[in-house]
Amino acid sequence: MSKRLLAALEYPNADNINLAEEKTLRNVVVWLELNKFQRAKQSTLNGLKNVSSKDWTIHFDDYKECFGCPPLSSQVEEVHWLLGQAIQNETSKNRNVYLKHAVENIKTSNVPSVVAENPLDKLDFRSTEFGNRVNQLAKTLKIVPYPDPLVTLQAVRKVICTRLTPDCVEHPDKYIVTGTPYPFQDADLGFDLHDKVLNQAAKVLRMLYIHDLRDLQTKANELIVAVQNVTANPKTDTKLGQVGR
């Protein structure tokens, strides 16, 4: 981590630094003071420059005090802290520059660079050829094509998914409802749009809506039954009352 901070601060040869080495650590501190902070008293600085001295630690403690650096478990950590301070100073000096880069970074990094492997994705959905093929498919399935081929494609999908699954083909009774259809043409719409065609369309919409409601209701009932499997325990006790004669 410290390597990164040093690299960011443009310390020469940051990648090869080993802060565990006492001499390297002391040199880093000196470099920081000379290039980044320029805060120390002359006497402290002189003491720090003397990297081989036995008293270096004492000077280092003085140096730390003028930053308010808290006592940490090792000098490496303390240097790390100092590096953090240096980074903070750098960024606040050139805030706008960094901000600009950050935002740009975010923008570009979020867009995944997907390699288009699915040839379907490469289709031009708006081309006439696409439209024609979709309509052909619709015709085979006996679906009336819609002016927008994408809508037709939706209809095609619906038919295939609900009627052409292997299970459905094998057991049609499970899926296809039999019985007399309700004569919805005669049914009351409930309101009048004053246009025969619109009324028909409204009726169809009503029927579809009712169909959806029925599905929803059936699902709700299934849910209730599932709960009943856990909770139900119906009992009667003829000793409680008297029945019959």
Partner: peptide, 12 residues
């Protein structure tokens, strides 16, 4: 319903 005396469709 909870006690199991009636069917779900009854509620409907």
């Amino acid at each position: 319903l909870r006690e199991g005396y009636i069917w779900a469709e009854d509620k409907e």
